[in-house]
Design a protein around this nucleic acid. Structure first.
Lengths: 222, 222
DNA sequence: ACCTGAACACCGTTCAAGT
DNA sequence: ACCTGAACACCGTTCAAGT
């Protein structure tokens, strides 16, 4: 019965998003859950986009503040990307949120960008290259971590498992001579990888690319 | 005055999407442009999602068929990803389309996935790793190439340039001690990179990561 | 086979008004 | 400062009906 606060709205929005997907987060639905009129939300947020920005900021805020400024640039970069991946897996809707918003509008994500840009630039890349690499790392982490839980439109765990089963069967029944590898790997394709593979292999993949390019740079400039 | 065909709908949808952004592609808007009733589209497409799938298929179809099965796996993979990046830059809305749809529903993109999985697996990775890497490459290419032309809501080139100017000023007026690198690199951040940097550096970054992981694998298994 | 008309259940948002 | 009521201009989609 307390009054409506900005944070209460955001937390309820994240709850809906995690449980039923971001597309279920609606001004009207949100108002209903909070026992309030849709227009009440417009006092706290200019429009729906700013609500989504608020969701993103809430997600990233906790992790963005902790900075450990020790070690070489690639280790620090690995920790940064690893932390982002962690956030993305704690909330099912995190990836969708950060894909939808303009990341530069999210204050806490701006901190992540700044840290990344600094570390990459310190590795010897030009400004233009650093921007490209930062986008590669941050968007890449989101793309990697966000792939699976994307389009679970409000179904329960049991329904989701059934949906995966149907999807796997769909892939397995493709023509074997046209899509041999998809048929072969249908199971890991729809089930995704284990958490550890993501954390270690996925992050290594991202950082590895940057390390290679950094090594080539110093090799050619030497 | 010819009759409404599936391809005509898709081509008009792509035209709208390229000019005004994917969010402007609407059943009703499309019907209006085609001089037809909104419900007419439901004869050719089950629902809007299938329309988007059709758009994606149309985009990827041309490039997916050309396969050059010569050279080692990493060169072939580089050509594949490079070709995808090409498609993404020919149509402004391509990245948004391929981000929105379930890629496995798009027949021609299924071919790209199959080719990628085969090449990666051939490089010595397990099935689980191959799936992760394929997603890394395909989603990564889309994320890299799609970043800039995302939220141009129907504005002309001139308006877009003005919007970029405003955005750059916004970044430059951030507190310098909190966001030193963002302030410093504001210009390349909002303007993006030149086309060549994308094609060479961007693709090298993606492929480089895979090559490194492949090298580590053979090193540890030797 | 291919398209229309009317209707339904949703959206986000504005604006004046209430307390 | 904080919220409501009524209204506007949109969506996607269904279903029966027309040719």
């Amino acid at each position: 019965m307390g009054k409506l606060t900005r944070d209460a709205v955001i937390e309820q929005a994240l709850r809906i998003g995690d449980d039923e997907g971001l597309q279920a987060v609606t001004i009207r639905r949100l108002a209903q859950d909070l026992g309030v009129t849709p227009m009440a939300l417009y006092w706290h947020f200019k429009n729906k986009e700013q609500l989504t920005v608020g969701m993103g900021d809430h997600l990233v805020r906790g992790f963005a503040t902790e900075e450990d400024a020790t070690g070489p640039w690639n280790e620090r970069l690995r920790r940064l990307v690893g932390g982002l991946v962690d956030v993305l897996r704690r909330h099912a809707c995190a990836a969708s949120v950060l894909e939808e918003v303009d990341q530069m509008e999210v204050p806490s994500f701006l901190r992540v960008w700044d840290t990344a840009l600094g570390l990459i630039n310190q590795a010897g890349f030009t400004y233009e290259e650093s921007c490209l690499i930062a986008r590669y790392l941050l968007k890449g982490a989101i793309a990697l971590a966000g792939g699976e839980a994307r389009d679970r439109h409000g179904r329960s765990d049991l329904e989701a498992a059934e949906a995966r089963r149907v999807k796997r069967l769909g892939l397995q029944s493709l023509p074997r001579d046209s899509y041999p590898h998809i048929v072969e790997m249908a199971a890991p394709l729809v089930d995704g990888c284990s958490a550890e593979v993501y954390d270690t292999f996925g992050v290594d993949l991202l950082i590895g690319g940057v390390e290679v390019m950094a090594a080539r740079r110093t090799a050619s400039s030497a």
